[in-house]
Design a protein around this nucleic acid. Structure first.
Lengths: 109, 109
DNA sequence: TTTTTGGTTAAGTATTTACTTGACAATTGG
DNA sequence: CCAATTGTCAAGTAAATACTTAACCAAAAA
């Protein structure tokens, strides 16, 4: 990924994080409640090391937060990140829907 | 990308499509109104061929629709796809927010 | 204290993916 | 008719990214 305007960097990271199915599965799991890294890894057929790497990307995107107590790291959802996605999507959609070009479509038919 | 349950395939394609910044820029552009492929390519510093390839991925995801009349292909937003994203995101978020684990967090502090 | 559990880090491999080039087809303008 | 525009397709390249292995550390259990 090349550089971009500062205000898009966040969105970039979020969508990149969500672009991988394994990471979405991890989010799925975490959204049902806090889980440790090894619990998170169990249903996935990849190594623990790979899971840790995915987790790092999820944390950098701000979608997930984690905290280590003792030797176990517990993962939680960070709702703010999700709000940013909804915002981006609904913004683009409403932009389109508010257009009157639809009218042109009808006339063209 | 490996296989997945049939009902997740759509979501997979959508998030994969949104995972690329160039494709999001294309969506950005299209959401302001219908555009031809070459118009779409102009601000992007990649070849027309690359744009066409991105467009194909966007169409397969259901986020964009296009139609060719004469020699020009015009691209439009397909709002239904966007709704699917919002649904997925808000579902995960509300799942988390409705959890009472927050209570546990407070007690732990 | 020894072992097991849970996690981290670095380095390398292999697959995906974005992108280019070049050759081509078809519509439109001069 | 000839040329420019608009797009398509196939094949190859280069870069990004997912994943593994292996060595390691700290906390908890036996």
């Amino acid at each position: 990924m090349p550089d971009a305007r500062p205000d898009t960097v966040l969105v970039d990271r979020i969508f990149h994080a969500l672009g991988d199915r394994t990471r979405r599965e991890m989010i799925e799991r975490i959204s049902h409640g806090p889980v440790s890294v090894s619990q998170l890894a169990k249903p996935l057929e990849i190594t623990l090391a790979a899971v840790v790497q995915h987790l790092q990307i999820l944390e950098e995107s701000g979608l997930v937060r984690s905290e280590k107590v003792g030797r176990v790291r517990t993962c939680r959802i960070e709702p703010a990140g999700f709000a940013a996605v909804e915002e981006w999507v609904s913004e683009r959609r409403s932009l389109w829907e508010s257009r009157l070009d639809r009218l042109g479509d009808l006339l063209a038919e």
